[in-house]
Design a protein around this nucleic acid. Structure first.
Lengths: 202, 202, 202, 202
DNA sequence: AATGAATGAGTATTCATTCAT
DNA sequence: CATGAATGAATACTCATTCAT
């Protein structure tokens, strides 16, 4: 009767909890987030929460990790397998991806990492390995391939993929801090990409 | 030779305290910073600290403000009064300034604001008015002048000075989070400026 | 044989705590009472205490209220339903009641109210409505009935029931302040009642 | 030029301080009164205050004592030397005196004693010896004299002078606690005296 | 004598974590 | 597994008192 639901919930518990935790951390930051509030929002008792996550810190790490994994992989695969020219890829899928990031949970994670990173170096390492280094590596390879194919000049951009994503970072910070001051972040990123391409195209 | 327990330095106290507080907040963030440690580092009793700052929050705000004011004004004045061409100014003083920021206390303040901004909107407003809006405004005017003088094309950059400072933001975040992964932030900014100038120059 | 550290007595806790708190407030007054001592006497951790009472002030109010409610109602009912003559009632149940008050917890509450009333006007209001105004009202009605029945003259006593309870107040204050100086408070009240009755009887 | 004032102030300092302290204690009670506020209101530095009174408690005691002494003596002398009959004295000077008390500083002192008495037994002793026992003794003697002179019957009132002052106590407590509920305290005391006299007169 | 900056012990309150049920 | 009552260490803030000036 009600059992299937019960079964299902049991399976989903960790996810339900990290999702509730994500919201709470997003709202209050790590230090000011209450474990109790996480439990309440997850519809779970405090005790049960501690059954799944040994400490608040564990929970925090789980939250960061759970958000991180998803999104990126699709992009990475596309980069490796795409048949588009590098320019087309940058103008298309990459720009699209960058536009989505500042409003996504990733922005929250970045904020949490900036705030708490110093006290959780392993988390930063994790994030570095799974997101930043992978992401930047993929972009670098995309540019490289453009160079190899004779689309692009060989410029510092090949070594510094950060140059491509910089406006995404700015947009993210802007949304976090200055939400009430409008900024056309799409335009920002489009123009930036334009600029970069003008600079590197042969 | 014992240090005097009493010192009576009403004039210097606020600065001594905010400086100690800056260090502590920089290390731990707002929530995890202990008032007692601030006092200890300032070589002062907890009680005295509360004589100068009514609450921990007040102290935090004083710290943010004390860091903010200084640096920027010199640059702004230079922008308004310089006899350099816009290009020369951007390549010279502005780039220099941008290179210095990521390693300066401003980076710490940014980090604190990103972490705590949501709970201290007045602080964000303060920062916006005194730093961001002023700074971006000055850069925008510099570009504008370049356009007026026939140095530059009229591009989106005129409306989006964020495009110029984006790599500075990236460098800052990088230093905060990934200090141990080297990144040639100077090269990053130089290349970026190169790119922008190539894009906007007639 | 070690006492269990955990007890789980949600039902009884509030009463256990307010009772301990009553003792502590009685001994030290509000301001000098330490929450920690209340907890200790209640055999409870400080944290638990705050689970039941949001603040020390809340606890204080709960204590006052918990003492107030009880005692009076029986008397009030008796006054309304008694078949005794007013004189017999005053000489009997009322006098008995008055004799008991100065040694009862009510005396403590009065002391606390006198001490702290100014800073807790709502508590004074509460006490006024639930005790003083009810009690004086009932006594007034008792006298009035005596007048209606032709037992008593219509004197100022009808309007000023305080005249009947005055020696109870004196006895209370005396016990609070001058416990070590003996005073036959029973005799005091008996004589007083005698005096009043002599004055109002036809 | 300004010297005389300086001299004068020096003489008056203790009085100025205790007067300021009286106000502050009256407003906040002992525990919640700030020494700093006393100093400020006395127009004196905290340090100087501690030159005159070793501790807050000393200051408190000085305040209590300073208020106590005055008023009573005049009455006592009058009682001993009056040529009025006892009845006339009670109806006249004594009643007048009683009427003045509830609105006088004495009421404040009583409140402070009720609140703090337990922790300052010596103060209670002091008050007992200098005020209560003297005052009640004098009233008792007045009644006694009435008995000796054949004005009054020999009743319990002779032994329990509290019976005469009871409504004064009630009025005092009333003003302290229920200031906003009107009570004709003069009428209360007049009627009471009437009652007592009717009871004890031959 | 006079000041008020400085001290530090003391206290209410919070919250991650535990554990009897 | 699940609960939430219970714990207690941690921490911001206060205020009587001291003492260099």
């Amino acid at each position: 009767m009600a059992e299937p639901r019960y079964q299902r919930r049991k399976q989903d518990r960790p996810k339900e909890i990290t999702e509730a935790a994500f919201d709470v951390f997003a709202e209050h930051g790590y230090a000011s987030a209450r474990v109790e509030e996480v439990a309440k929002r997850a519809g779970v008792s405090k005790g049960l929460l501690y059954l799944y996550f040994k400490t608040k810190e564990e929970l925090f790490k789980a939250v960061i990790r759970s958000v991180v994994i998803r999104r990126l992989d699709a992009l990475l695969v596309t980069i490796e397998t795409t048949e588009l020219s590098s320019e087309a890829f940058i103008r298309g899928p990459l720009l699209e991806f960058m536009k989505r990031v500042p409003g996504s949970p990733v922005a929250v994670v970045i904020r949490l990492l900036i705030a708490e990173g110093q006290r959780h170096p392993d988390l930063v390492d994790y994030y570095w390995e799974n997101v930043v280094s992978k992401g930047l590596g993929a972009i670098a390879r995309c540019v490289e391939r453009g160079v190899e194919r004779g689309e692009f000049r060989d410029t510092a951009v090949t070594q510094l993929p950060q140059l491509l994503v910089a406006p995404m970072m700015v947009s993210m910070i802007w949304k976090i801090l200055f939400a009430k001051r409008t900024l056309d972040t799409d335009k920002l990123m489009e123009t930036h990409i334009e600029m970069v391409l003008a600079y590197i195209k042969l």
